[in-house]
Design a protein around this nucleic acid. Sequence first.
RNA 1: GUGAGUGUAGCUCAGUCGGUAGAGCUCCAGAUUGUGGAUCUGGCUGUCGUGGGUUCGAGUCCCAUCACUCACCCCA
Length: 424
Amino acid sequence: MSGRYRVLRGMHDILPEEVGRWQYLEETTRAWFARYGFREIRTPVLEATELFSRSVGASSDIVRKEMYTIERGEQSLCLRPENTAPVVRAFVEHSRHRGIAAGYPERLFYIGPMFRYERPQKGRQRQFHQIGVEVLGGEEPLIEAETIEMVWGLLERLGIASIELQLASVGDSACRPKYRQALVHWLRPRLDGMCDDCRRRADENPLRVFDCKVEADLLVLADAPTMQESLCGDCEQHDSRVKRHLETLGVPFVENAGLVRGLDYYRRTVFEIAAGGLGAQNAILGGGRYDGLVRELGGPDVPGFGFAMGMERAAMLIPDDRLPRARIDVSLITLGAAGHDAAIEMAQRLRAQGISVQMSMTERPMGTQLKRADRGAARFALFIGKDELARGRFGLKDLASGQQDEIDEAGLVARIKAGRDGGD
RNA sequence: GUGAGUGUAGCUCAGUCGGUAGAGCUCCAGAUUGUGGAUCUGGCUGUCGUGGGUUCGAGUCCCAUCACUCACCCCA
């Protein structure tokens, strides 16, 4: 490690060697989401701080201690820590609800950086990237099922294996407060035997006790009342419909009554997909329904559902053999000054024909040029020297097989393009 | 914010009891003046994370600090 300046803590350069992994993730996502009618939305990374304290929750860790804020004159701005609130802000600002027909909600996705001032660890950066989806303008359980089926299919297409979908309902404004009360009541006489974290959680956010990792506590909690059995009629019906649709679509899930999402705005359905190989941060994506958020942010009473996927986490799980190898079509091997001069224009003509070409910027020994062609993973080497120029025919060598043919310039393009399918 | 581990060449790492800074890979040149991958020979590359202290002498010991990694909290 050298140099005087370094990247900020928790932030990373994505170098050319890794960029292919990211492009594969992004391209696969865009193509797959398009099949479900999702369209991309891009919003600014900078927003009013209040947007997040209103939506994510002023008491949440994200707002309390993890935001990058900028005081600019009278305004408090911040780098977005998540993107549901900005997307909803844009939805409201542009009156998008006016274009929604019953049964056809607005389907949006985004890809971009988020910022949270946290202590970095495996799978957690201060600048990280999310692929997120928001469905606005429908409360049908099919929305959950279809959207989850979509992302389940995406992970399959990316070759990400050993994943588990966990599903729960956190109820609504009718049944959740009642359950919360019941849980606190149940916990109170048992807290003495439980860990410090649980005692603190019981005060601040009782549902979080289910996140506890202490064996003894988990045994106690196994008998705790669950949200599931406390759901009101509407929530219960919604939840069972979501599950029925998921079964129809063949998406396996496990119910996890202890699933707690960190953001205040969730109602009813919440879910998470966890994977092995990610260390302690094993959630690759999570989300839920947020009926009420649009109204909270000053819009009409439009229901919503969405999730966000951590791109760093997803990228880590894509098997190497899934990634297309970036290859250059042809590397020019020049011999002598005349060959090098002629190659300059040859490169231009081939590139105009849609072929990727590399060549040395200076005359170099032939052995060296071939070595570079190899290292640069070129498919072909094309020899250009005075003999070839005199004959008007060039040696085109397949670097994998070693086979070399004499071919005129007119035949080069077709031959090189044909080599794309044949070669590994 | 808390705890633990690690910082030596572009990369991966060795460095004994405190005594002149090392290896492999990469890179460059050559063996090979018009044919690559293998092999061989030679070569370049260092504020030893940073600052201070102890010492005749510090990569090595002590203190501080910064960064990275993992974990906690929390989250994607």
